[in-house]
Design a protein around this nucleic acid. Structure first.
Lengths: 209, 209
DNA sequence: CAGTTTTTGTACTACATCGCATAAAATAGG
DNA sequence: CCTATTTTATGCGATGTAGTACAAAAACTG
């Protein structure tokens, strides 16, 4: 697919750029509401080229969010684990989340996965699997980070890391939904910071309960 | 629309039942993926009858979730405010939420509003308004209930009710999304209970910080 | 330069979908 | 029994959509 075959007519499109454009359409219109004509126009590729390059609509979406995951998501994850302080790491993580979910002008975007395919998840098993997979990745990410913090004594030793991870995931899900509803960056940051503050009140290491 | 005109051919459908059937289609398929033919088949009404009775697709959806709000949502709200104990009220509220979001057999449903129109909210201002309105109703509901509890001394007087309300809303958003991804009733209840427990740890009246 | 390979662009088929026009059916009133 | 009124049922036209067939175009290879 992306093999740089030296023979034949050179492709006039950049696969990565095309997938970015496709993801933009999905984020703006939603999954079902995005037609192959929309994708064709956005990528400046004719429909046959789209099929040849990526496959059908689901394949395109799948590959687009795959690339999205390899970039934005991996960057967030790295941020979360690279920062030694859990509190700082989480704060930075969610600051980046809010930035990713709220564009400057193009209108409300939300999350390219959570906000886009929720509607179709019930009917289409492949899409549901995609959504479930994204949810599980987020859960695991938070839990792993919390386990590290607990092992390092940064949070209380009796912390239920799974429950706290669920709350952090819920915050992310809520931010995605609110961004989709048009809530602005300032308000999203307020919600994120207030929630994080409350959570850390609960898991502070000194607090005996 | 629902005026019982005594003249003319009697209608063979029950408007409430038809809207219920329509909402079922939307919940299963998502908004964009649901066509008027689907709705026509589910309601057993011919398309012209659908138009005459409810209007276009958005009107049908709007009226369907209006009826849904008048029933399920109002029932949840009543439950939350009728129960004197905040903790019990919230527990019962979310137990009902989980029950509503997870069907027995028909596959994952999620929330008729949050899970269904998130995808289309970015592109369609009317749908975005619908989503924003639903979010705000939930926020206000939780905040009002928390304010009552704070006034009654049930939770700490310095509680940031807005922040706690945001967390409860986030829990609801997260449950809707997870239900949509296929998470079962037991796991959703576990998440809800664990999160509620953590939140109440934070707002307990005795806790000095 | 001729042949091969890959991409591109046009066109086509088949079908879904929306919204409405129009006639038939079913009831109440006179 | 006839008329007015309202709902139902059939069907039409225009457009959107998915997926593919086919030939032209543009590069490399020998």
């Amino acid at each position: 697919m992306t093999k740089p075959s030296s023979r034949g007519r050179p492709r006039q499109y950049d696969p990565e750029q095309a997938l970015d454009a496709a993801l933009g359409e999905f984020r703006r219109r939603g999954y079902s509401a995005t037609s192959l004509d929309h994708l064709s126009e956005a990528t400046k590729m004719a429909r046959p080229s789209l099929y040849a390059a990526f496959g059908n609509k689901f394949d395109i979406y799948h590959k687009a969010i795959g690339q999205y995951a390899d970039r934005s998501v991996a960057r967030r994850q790295q941020l979360l684990f690279a920062e030694p302080s859990l509190k700082k790491g989480i704060a930075e993580y969610f600051a980046l989340i809010v930035e990713t979910y709220t564009p400057d002008e193009d209108g409300p975007l939300g999350c390219a996965i959570l906000s886009v395919i929720s509607g179709e998840a019930a009917a289409d098993p492949a899409i549901r699997a995609e959504l479930a997979s994204a949810l599980e990745r987020t859960d695991t990410r938070f839990r792993d980070r919390l386990d590290i913090a607990r092992a390092g004594g940064e949070i209380a030793t009796d912390t239920d890391t799974r429950a706290v991870a669920d709350m952090l995931a819920a915050l992310q899900h809520s931010l995605a939904l609110r961004a989709r509803a048009g809530t602005g960056r300032a308000e999203l940051n307020r919600i994120a910071n207030a929630t994080i503050a409350l959570i850390f009140k609960t898991i502070a290491p000194g607090t005996k309960d």
